[in-house]
């Protein structure tokens, strides 16, 4: 579940008051979530060389170092902050490992890469994975359809769904990650859901 709630706040306050133990608790609290994010966002080609745990571990160390100044200013909610550190690290690695040679001048990688894996993950989640054997074949079909529908979504809409439903963020957190207002995040979410609905309906009729 999204866990940027009051417990995190309490820990941050304890940290700001000098309680070192709180720092550890804070990081551990969000580690699994972070790992999930890294796992499903990591380019499979990179995953062959670097383990998601490495990225998380390095993020933890950076976070531990910067935590004090974060806790004093709290420029954004905690998890989005932590995630941003991980994200930067991830982008760093992808750049170094994957874009080194083939990147042409002036060509930027997509701001928020949507890897096959993350797309697949989202699709898998959307159909759920209930243990009903009779539905297995149907499920595969549904998943393919969803996958196709997601492919059709605009990247920004897909991103908000990914943040909310794969990374378990609240829309407030997603807003902080996307650097838009909460209202805008809510609107984007609504639009994505509406668009997805239309796309799924179209696919069904085809």
């Amino acid at each position: 579940m999204p866990s940027s709630g009051s417990d995190t706040d309490v820990l941050l306050e304890r940290l700001a008051a000098g309680d070192r133990q709180a720092a550890d608790a804070l990081l551990i609290r969000h580690r699994d979530r972070l790992k999930k994010m890294v796992s499903c966002r990591m380019d499979p080609r990179l995953a062959a060389r670097v383990s998601p745990s490495d990225v998380v571990q390095e993020t933890m160390i950076t976070a531990a170092r910067d935590l004090d100044s974060y806790a004093k200013n709290r420029p954004m909610p905690f998890y989005p902050w932590l995630r941003r550190l991980a994200w930067n690290r991830l982008m760093d690695l992808q750049r170094r490992h994957l874009y080194r040679q083939k990147r042409a001048v002036g060509r930027e990688e997509q701001a928020t890469p949507m890897t096959d894996q993350s797309l697949f993950e989202l699709a898998r989640r959307l159909v759920g994975h209930g243990p009903s054997p009779s539905r297995a074949a149907q499920t595969r079909e549904t998943r393919e359809r969803l996958r196709a529908a997601l492919d059709e979504l605009e990247p920004t809409q897909r991103e908000v769904l990914l943040l909310k439903y794969v990374e378990d963020m609240t829309l407030a957190e997603a807003a902080a990650v996307l650097d838009i207002t909460v209202d805008a995040a809510k609107m984007r979410h609504l639009r994505a859901v509406q668009r997805l609905r239309t796309l799924l309906a179209d696919l069904e009729h085809d």
């Binding site: 999930k36 989640r125 509406q194 609905r197």
Partner: peptide, 15 residues
């Protein structure tokens, strides 16, 4: 009209 899509989206357990 939103319901089926939202239900599909919500239908998983992260943990």
């Amino acid at each position: 009209r939103l319901l089926p899509t939202l239900a599909a989206l919500a239908n998983f357990s992260a943990t």
